[in-house]
Amino acid sequence: MTDRFHIKLAGGNVAFDCASDDTLLRGGLRQGLGLAYECNVGACGSCKFDLVDGEVDDLFPAAPGLKPKERERGKRLACQCVPRSDCTIKIRSGEEYVSDHVPRKMQARLIAKRALTHDISEFSFATGEAAQFLPGQYALLRLEGIGQARAYSMSNLANADGTWQFIIRKVPAGIVSNALFDTLQVGSELELDGPYGIAYLRPQIPRPIVCIAGGSGLAPVLSIIRGTRDAGGLRGIPQLLYGGRGPGDIPDIAAMLSVSGVEAGIHPVVSMPELAPVAAWSGDVGFVHEFVPKKLGQPLTAYEYYLAGPPPMIEACVRMLVAEHNVPSTQIHFDRFF
């Protein structure tokens, strides 16, 4: 049975109700509060809080988002703690964390699975109600029998039919990605909880858009590029730099975008051309961040950036943009795929 507990934010009179099977972060976001977060999976540390009063259960005590020293001092992660009683917590918050579409848990049925490369597939799910999210956001998918949820970014746009599309990489020995590829059959259901995420398209900002993605980071940037179609004020054709290990890791991005009728400059980069299966690679070789200055026509401060992919790639890109090219951090939005 699920109870509901009353969670008070210290130092004010803001409070929310949280179900005993919901984490404090998600409980707060569902009620329209802007509790600080990024990854939702215990890795980034953005949702740290102090428990002033009450009792919680920590679902992931080994989560890398907190250092052992911080745990000793009583810090916890709001995305990994569920309430066991009424609580008072001290947590950061801000307007930028308030979700345009309040996240909700839904049952979703797998309606199609389509291979894009040897280890990346597109998964399409249907929910009984409209799919509401901003381009670039993600959802948490939870499979029956696996306690842990994982974050996956949507690659399509919000729609009335309730279709949610994801582009997922099969991670060697990964629990959830392998279950999605091997166990989940078309017609089966899982729990979809969303939308979440703060690296969404800012359509009110007119600067031309540059998307940089690597590995499994294609989904959110495709959604953002697709989203520019309905955002009339944006200037210029969006540019996408996509990095993969070998030539076989690069999906046919142009074909995926042409189906949705959007134009983009597409710049694939591979770091290990020797992985070429048959035909040799004649394109760019190196790490994707190295090609950003070469591919863009204007000073790098002229653009708005959306990044998704492995944490080291994001770090290299942000360093290059901010430290070498003086791009204000406020022009860079990213999701690290922990």
Partner: peptide, 21 residues
């Protein structure tokens, strides 16, 4: 205390992500 970025106290240098400035 928030994202665990480290800075050199003497030079102000940003030593670890997510700080770069």
């Amino acid at each position: 205390p928030w994202h665990n970025a480290r800075f050199c106290i003497k030079t102000g240098k940003a030593l670890t992500f997510p700080a770069v400035v």
